[in-house]
Computed example of a mutant assay.
Amino acid sequence: MQWLYLAIAVVFEIAVAIAAGKAEGFKNRKWTIVTLVSGAIGTYFLSKALLTFDVGVGYAIWTSISGIGITLLGALFFGQRLNWRKAIGIAAIIIGVVGLQLSGAA
């Protein structure tokens, strides 16, 4: 169940990043509300996941997978560039997350 909680937290963290970009420094009320609500929901599910995960490991997995998701969505839908250096960084993050999992993180 902790993996489901972590996955939900990742989805909402990605939503926070996208909404915060559209909130225009919290001038756009609609996107500001989406940012804050998404952040609250994501934090709730992260806290549920951290009941089982070691805090450092759970947080590292959460931020890493969220960062990858944000980077890929930025490239796919928002015209942001994804070059070979970013691809190597993403691969390194994936290797790190797999390493954390293999270490018996949960």
Rank of each mutant, 00 (worst) to 15 (best):
Gly79Met: 02
Thr35Gly: 01
Gly67Leu: 08
Tyr59Lys: 12
Ile94Thr: 02
Arg29Tyr: 04
Thr32Val: 01
Ile94Val: 15
Thr71Phe: 04
Val57Asn: 06
Gly56Gln: 06
Thr63Val: 15
Ala75Asp: 01
Ile14Thr: 10
Ala9Tyr: 09
Ala75Ile: 04
Arg85Asn: 05
Ile68Val: 15
Lys22Thr: 08
Ile88His: 02
Arg29Lys: 12
Ile18Phe: 08
Gly39Leu: 00
Gly56Ser: 14
Glu13Met: 02
Tyr44Thr: 15
Phe78His: 10
Ile95Glu: 00
Arg85Cys: 03
Val16Ala: 06
Ala15Thr: 05
Gly25Leu: 09
Gly74Tyr: 04
Ser64Trp: 10
Leu36Asp: 00
Ser64Asn: 12
Leu72Ile: 15
Ala20Trp: 01
Phe78Pro: 13
Leu46Trp: 14
Ala23Glu: 01
Ala75Lys: 07
Gly69Thr: 07
Gly74Cys: 02
Ala49Met: 12
Ala17Glu: 05
Ala92Thr: 06
Thr52Trp: 00
Leu82Asp: 07
Trp84Thr: 09
Gln80Asn: 13
Phe53Ala: 03
Asp54Glu: 05
Leu82Ile: 09
Glu13Gly: 15
Phe53Arg: 07
Gly67Glu: 04
Lys48Cys: 13
Leu76Ser: 07
Arg85Thr: 10
Val11Met: 07
Gly74Asp: 02
Gly69Asn: 06
Trp84Cys: 00
Ala19Lys: 03
Ile93Lys: 07
Leu36His: 06
Ile8His: 13
Val37Pro: 05
Ala87Ile: 14
Gly39Lys: 03
Tyr59Phe: 15
Asn28Asp: 07
Glu13Asn: 13
Leu46Phe: 14
Ile18Met: 03
Lys27Val: 03
Leu51Gln: 15
Arg29Met: 02
Gly79Tyr: 03
Ala7Gly: 11
Ile33Phe: 03
Val57Ile: 13
Phe45His: 15
Phe53Gln: 03
Ile95Met: 01
Leu73Ile: 11
Gly79Cys: 05
Ala23Met: 02
Thr63Asp: 09
Ala40Ser: 08
Ile33Tyr: 01
Leu36Phe: 08
Gln80Leu: 06
Ile95Phe: 04
Ile61Asp: 09
Gly56Cys: 08
Gly89Tyr: 06
Ile18Asp: 00
Trp62Arg: 14
Gly25Met: 10
Ala9Cys: 10
Ile95Arg: 01
Arg29Ala: 08
Phe77Leu: 11
Leu50Glu: 09
Thr32Gly: 06
Gly58Ser: 11
Ile93Gln: 07
Val57His: 11
Trp62Phe: 15
Gly39Tyr: 01
Ile18Thr: 08
Gly89Lys: 04
Gly69His: 06
Lys86Glu: 04
Gly58Asn: 13
Ile93Ala: 14
Tyr44Val: 14
Ile14Tyr: 01
Val37His: 04
Ser66Pro: 13
Glu13Arg: 11
Ser64Lys: 11
Thr43Gln: 09
Val57Glu: 07
Asp54His: 12
Glu13Leu: 05
Ile95Trp: 00
Gln80Met: 05
Ala23Pro: 06
Ala17Met: 06
Ile90Val: 12
Gly89Leu: 04
Ile95Ser: 02
Leu46Ile: 14
Trp31His: 08
Ile8Gln: 13
Arg81Trp: 00
Arg29Trp: 04
Ala20Arg: 08
Tyr59His: 10
Gly74Asn: 01
Ser64Gln: 10
Arg81Asp: 07
Gln80Glu: 15
Ser47Tyr: 14
Leu50Gln: 12
Ile18Ala: 03
Thr71Ser: 12
Lys27Thr: 12
Leu46Lys: 13
Arg81Thr: 14
Gln80Gly: 08
Leu76Asp: 00
Leu82Cys: 09
Ala49Pro: 14
Ala75Thr: 06
Leu36Asn: 02
Phe45Ala: 13
